[in-house]
Design a binder for these strands. Sequence first.
DNA 1: ATATTATATGAATGTTCGTTCATATTTGCA
DNA 2: TGCAAATATGAACGAACATTCATATAATAT
Lengths: 121, 121
Amino acid sequence: MKDVKLTTIKKMESLLETASDSTRLKIMLALLDDDECECEECNCGVCESLNCMIEKCVNDIAMEIGASQSLVSHQLKVLKDADLVRTRKEKTKVYYSLKDRHIRLLLGVAYEHVMEGEEND
Amino acid sequence: MKDVKLTTIKKMESLLETASDSTRLKIMLALLDDDECECEECNCGVCESLNCMIEKCVNDIAMEIGASQSLVSHQLKVLKDADLVRTRKEKTKVYYSLKDRHIRLLLGVAYEHVMEGEEND
DNA sequence: ATATTATATGAATGTTCGTTCATATTTGCA
DNA sequence: TGCAAATATGAACGAACATTCATATAATAT
């Protein structure tokens, strides 16, 4: 992974920066919720199956993570602009879901790193 | 991955925030350089073998990424404080290397996400 | 001891970012 | 047409952060 182009680094920076906020992490974790997933491979929330593509509307997310509607909407826009989530409109509601498996993997790796604490390689 | 504790989210935020900076990304990518790695599993720079644990001293990193010594030292401290790199002293030099495989995985996932561009799941 | 090399640190600066509050926009329905 | 629900947006404020410059510390060798 040497000679990575500057534009690539900038995109990586953007991706990680977007993910590195408590509010946005709470939102993404809410969208990672695997309550209804029934696939066998599913463990620790980092399931790569489409079954795990939970989608939730703005107000539900706000309620779930205990944040204001305005804040959640603002941060969802940040996530959307950075391509971490996708949207689907239905009547007056807008349903958000994680964009792809890389986002789930990113959350999974970060989660596992934190969980394993101070252990080394 | 529901009901993630707030302290866990804060730690994830810290990890991602630390990783989400161009200078620090350049530093970490320099430490991910797999030029000398000879293991078979090694591909795309996200090798999990210890062979890939490249270590480099501050000035070499500064030269390689084209940044000032002061900046690199500052950012290495940030990386060290957040536990993304480890150090080894030898005479007057301090050798830095990535902390563990989670950091390599994190870089790899971010890299792949950027590389795959606009493709979806 | 002194000079030299390597690294770390502190202060200062400009910028970016998260959050709140108030308000606007959009869509469905009576 | 008008009301209500859901979401989006703009301004403003304070806090956090990356970088630079100058300087300090640490370790080695002559």
